[in-house]
Nucleic acid binder design. Structure first.
Lengths: 142, 142
DNA sequence: GAATACCCGATATTTTTTGTCAAGTTTAGA
DNA sequence: TCTAAACTTGACAAAAAATATCGGGTATTC
């Protein structure tokens, strides 16, 4: 189990936008310079963040991205959901997508375990606010 | 984020072994019959479970697998760790494996978030005992 | 109108996961 | 002792997912 780089990158992007946004739109290339991540890939991630309305874009020269909602209202869970879809996908649901399905009892124990786990994960990540992360230091990967 | 079928299968195997073990060694083909999973794949998973000493094998005709420790002492966390390795791998550690490394502060906020999350996940899964799961119903996928 | 910068679908590459195979070794039971 | 059942193990193959790249587009500023 792990967070993918998608989620990691998305968080770094939005933190950068939150941090530098007050000085005007933050361009992708600025993020790339500061965080050292692949530009074309970030473009896709930022598109997702925009479509989920966490950020908005300003097109044209001097354009870039800005937060679309107050920084205090954004949680890590919001960002991950925007970038990766479901934060924790139940294995049972995944099988269902393949046309398979859980047979037998609806109150399968394992399903209950995964549901509880999902709940705990989402509760925690939903409690971590971007605002609080901004106050502290971050690191970049090289 | 998700549990892979490896972990899911491994849990189903060990639950079956725990359930039927008292009547003698549980062979892979028996598990396949009851759970409908791919035999050759289970073979690999059972090997991991054996190497991590959760189960033991009885070779030869009439052989199979048995729990190697009291069922009350096994948790979901134990099984997942045996099957998948780290239950939750920090993205920072994963980068490190590629020869990259977190630059800058050692007290990176994101790392702290992931560490806390890892802790919560492991605590919960470490609290779910196989013994308790045995009492309830399970489902199979077809 | 030229440069900057976002938009977005398509495609390519790499990694991980999942599944299969084949050639062993061990043991029970006839 | 022979045979069939059943585990052992490494190697390989296929499928899926994650990561990354590309190219042609549109909007905006200066």
């Amino acid at each position: 189990m792990r967070i993918t780089t998608q989620g990691d990158y998305a968080l770094k992007c939005i933190l950068r936008i939150a941090a530098d946004g007050p000085q005007g739109p933050v361009s992708i290339s600025r993020i790339v310079d500061k965080e050292g991540l692949p530009l074309d890939y970030l473009e896709q991630l930022l598109l997702k963040l925009r479509r989920s309305r966490l950020i908005k874009s300003v097109r044209g020269a001097r354009g870039g991205y800005l937060l679309n909602v107050p920084v205090a209202s954004i949680t890590v869970a919001h960002v991950l959901r925007a970038a990766e879809g479901e934060i924790f996908e139940l294995i049972c649901d995944r099988k269902k997508k393949d046309g398979k399905k859980c047979k037998g009892s609806e109150d399968c124990v394992l399903k209950d375990v995964w549901k509880n786990l999902k709940n705990k994960i989402e509760t925690y990540l939903g409690s971590v606010k971007l605002k609080d992360l901004l106050k502290k230091t971050r690191c970049t990967v090289t």
